[in-house]
Design a protein around this nucleic acid. Structure first.
Lengths: 344, 344
DNA sequence: ATTGGCACTCAGATAGTTCGAGTGCTAACC
DNA sequence: GGTTAGCACTCGAACTATCTGAGTGCCAAT
């Protein structure tokens, strides 16, 4: 097994050229076109020798005997890690991000703007993970009476996230009743971290006036549900149409992939488990993600930070044959804007 | 131009058989298979004569000379209007709807459950339109301080819909300030229909304490935005993956269709403009919708009612070659459940 | 180490052939 | 008159054959 560093510099030049060409044309690339399009000072035959070497190293592969070569997952990996220079975003691209992401909006709007601009920028499927609220605190609980028995429970956390859940107390609640419940829940829960809030719920119910115990327990249940919904990761997607567009789908059965995306669960797990480097970037190429359905797709994420809550991720999913150099810039830029906007 | 009623009964039998067969097999259907699979007491030749007649009437067409026949839009229309018997839903299908649509949830959850169950039931793209809130009234306005200057404005309407919008007052607001704003807005707006609420906003701002005028105007703006967002129709989709699944896409470029669905605007207009009959059902077959992109798809909707607000629609979109008899039942059932659940 | 030369491979395009489901028409039949 | 059997005909789909050319691997010469 050869170490990467054993690969001579010219071989790497060839690999870089192959990846760039293939990303651009999406056709297997052969030795002759390679010499023509890039400024190699050697003949096609020499390049062929290099290619044979790269193939031995499993960095490129031929779809069928005697056809051009295509980078393997391993080839892309080496390319990304050591060969690609980051393409800076153009001014118009930066502008696009800024206009898409209106600041001074609430979390939902900011995230949805971010994911849409990223999808448009990359022509891939974009996704953003909600900041996990593990460390977030409860800012307020509002009870809004809807009719005699039904009440809307609104939970606001200290990072601008608002959740709501309808409950039915199965008993008539007077205005005073609602006020009491509101007071009790707020007194006990405001400023509590989500984690510990749940433990207080029983006490609140126990302390409530007798005739309100049932209602209190229903509200407590709603709070529990919302806290749980928080712990459970959530993502937003945009640009799924890009999968069907631009010719060759990155998967045999496009329907299955779209389905998986719609169900969210696969992507949620994947994005949650992805590791990122010290710069916050994470990338899984092809089979690296160990998900059969995604064996021909790459997932690129960058973490962004929401002060006060944990770090979350934003990224794109596309065919392994994606423009890594460009997309890395795009994802990173959107992540930066997110951090900036949310920090304000 | 022949009136429908001039078409002899046996011809209609043949048309019905053709539609049913084609829906089932998605292959053009020929005279021989037709005689075999359905209990026609006549020979294939006779059926051919009938088919020639149907073709003259433009109810069926042959993809190419000497191939089986396929129903035209007009053929489907006649089939649906006069020939198909509604297929009742199976017990398990009804059960699926019920479990999907937990009652005592808020509007978002109910609608999202409905659209998901419909997508699953029909294997098509399902969509539901939010009830327009033209007649709805404001139930409460809550102001939740997020930090010194930012405040979350929560607007609850009397049909369980909750909206929120973050505002930045650009000035420090004390608890008393927030209380005053809350009181003023609620006093002026609670029980006001959305339509007239907007007109009161100026007065509220004018009446506010001087040092709160700026803040009040920011909040008023937020209310305005939310009211507008309400007036603007909104839909939820589910099951878009079903388009890519099951073989032949109903459109040349699947990407364009997915894109249009994601952008929502096309479907929003279409669903808003669709007419429904006295039973609340509406159906556009193929080119009837006059949208090039959707020329090979049918859209089937049923209206549902949310007491107190206007009527909205729920339905499915799929290839013209869809199982109308079944889907009509499914859409109608979901609409009924919606009306029932929301009326509670 | 590099290169020109050359035989070889093989996917994809083009063209020809066959096959059969399906048609339209006509003449006979009830 | 409606129905039917019979038959010639059509034409897409599937199969085969052939051709082409981009690309390869290898070897001998530089």
């Amino acid at each position: 097994m050869n170490n990467q560093n054993d690969i001579p510099s010219r071989s790497l030049d060839v690999l870089r050229a192959i990846v760039n060409d293939y990303i651009e044309t999406s056709e297997p690339v052969g030795s002759k076109t390679l010499v023509e399009r890039h400024g190699f000072e050697v003949s096609a035959a020499t390049i062929r020798n290099e290619m044979a070497f790269l193939e031995e190293e499993q960095l490129i592969a031929a779809p069928h005997t005697s056809s051009g070569r295509v980078p393997t997952d391993k080839g892309y990996r080496l390319f990304v890690d050591r060969l690609s220079e980051v393409k800076r975003l153009s001014a118009s691209e930066r502008l696009a991000i800024e206009t898409f992401m209106s600041s001074s909006a609430d979390l939902d709007e900011v995230l949805s703007g971010a994911v849409q601009s990223l999808a448009q920028l990359t022509n891939q499927v974009a996704m953003v993970q909600y900041p996990s609220l593990g460390r977030a605190k409860i800012k307020a609980i509002e009870l809004v009476p809807i009719n005699e028995t039904r009440t809307l429970v609104v939970l606001v956390s200290d990072n601008d996230r608002v959740q709501q859940h309808m409950v039915n107390a199965h008993q008539v609640l007077s205005i005073e009743d609602v006020a009491e419940l509101r007071a009790r829940f707020n007194a006990a829960l405001v400023q509590q971290p989500f984690g510990s809030a749940v433990m207080k719920l029983e006490t609140i119910v126990a302390n409530s006036s007798n005739h309100l115990k049932a209602a209190a327990s229903v509200v407590a249940e709603a709070v529990q549900i919302m806290v749980d919904a928080n712990r459970q990761e959530k993502i937003i997607l945009a640009g799924t149409a890009n999968l069907a567009r631009h010719g060759q789908a990155p998967v045999a059965n496009l329907g299955d992939l779209l389905d998986a995306l719609e169900q969210q669960v696969v992507m949620m797990r994947l994005i949650a488990e992805m590791k990122t480097d010290q710069e916050g970037l994470g990338l899984l190429i092809g089979k690296e993600n160990n998900i059969e359905l995604l064996s021909q797709t790459s997932v690129l994420v960058s973490s962004y930070e929401k002060p006060g809550s944990e770090i979350a991720k934003v990224g794109v999913l596309g065919p392994t044959r994606m423009d890594y150099a460009h997309h890395i810039s795009a994802v990173r830029a959107v992540a930066n804007y997110l951090t900036k906007t949310l920090g304000a």
